[in-house]
Nucleic acid binder design. Structure first.
Lengths: 166, 166
DNA sequence: TTTACAATGTCAACAAGGCTGACGTAGTTG
DNA sequence: CAACTACGTCAGCCTTGTTGACATTGTAAA
């Protein structure tokens, strides 16, 4: 790799100005990223926190409360406030763990799955439009940079999520 | 561009699974993105909202309250609570507009600029590490996708920010 | 010049969603 | 049995967002 100052392999992309642009891109893009689900949730007594819980329960059905806690990075009190409403409204159900009966394995109900679909359809539509506009090469780069930006611990969550049924 | 199903120009990158990975990448990366400034701010009576205000005032000195309002996308009451503490603590100063005396043109004081530097040094360090790990091509793709993900109105802010001194 | 509008600040009340600390109840395990 | 773990819960606090109403000052148009 030639590190000449004029080619595309130069380090010009590391200037403070380039970095600032990246920072602002993250800020503005994240707003867009959450805008559509937020619109769906608004007025139905749920918020972004409910969305996140629903997303990851859908993603890894049978997940325990404490692994969800680890992924979301919030306190159990905070998560519990959210989960309680989801239980009460019949969107999520907890099944007692088979081997360890202290665990509560989380699953979406049909109703919960329906909301998950509505939310993720909206979010995927935006993501799909962005991906399509940018093209496969850009998408590859996008994911590479984001992954490098995560805390290592979260990077493990990101890569390692899978169906959680022991 | 050949849209054959096997080459790198295929639309495989638009599968729901790929989109979900992008969604989770945004979620986890944004956490990393804000983690370092949050650590600096914590315990000094400021939060993310103060960081955002300081960032954009630094970015476009002389900016009016209402354009800051537009960029941040919050209510004036919410912004005012933040700005008030920044005035009181001598991090930001407001100068009456030259042509329109109703305007308050916002500037960082030396003290404010020092905090801005500390915050953005931390954030840039992470961004730089991610950029360096990913390489120029990836960075290009990263920015392209993020830009496509913004709301059009915010995209204008992102591209159009400049020194705001009429 | 009055009259309407614009830019800003402010008070009050409220909600979401974070946090800490303390405590309780089951179930597991050494 | 003792110690630890998984989970739930009460209480209280903080930041940051919201709405609605109202005041001040300056600009601009009729």
């Amino acid at each position: 790799m030639a590190d000449n100052a004029s080619g595309s392999d130069s380090l010009l992309f590391l200037t403070d100005d380039q970095l600032r642009k990246g920072i602002e891109a993250m800020f503005f893009a994240y707003r867009g990223f959450t805008a559509d689900p937020d619109r769906i949730l608004e007025g139905m007594d749920y918020g972004r926190a409910h969305h996140r819980a629903i997303h990851f329960i859908h993603r890894a059905p049978g997940m325990t409360v404490s692994s969800l806690l680890g992924i979301l990075g919030v306190t159990k009190q905070s998560l519990n406030r959210v989960l309680r409403t989801l239980f009460d409204d019949g969107l999520v159900e907890a099944r007692v763990g088979k081997t360890d009966k202290r665990e509560r394995r989380l699953h979406l109900t049909d109703k919960g799955a329906a909301l998950e679909r509505a939310l993720s359809d909206a979010q995927r539509a935006r993501m799909r439009a962005a991906y399509r506009a940018a093209g496969p090469q850009a998408v590859q780069g996008f994911r590479t940079v984001l992954e490098a930006m995560m805390d290592p611990e979260m990077r493990r969550n990101y890569q390692g999520l899978r169906e959680d049924t022991p």
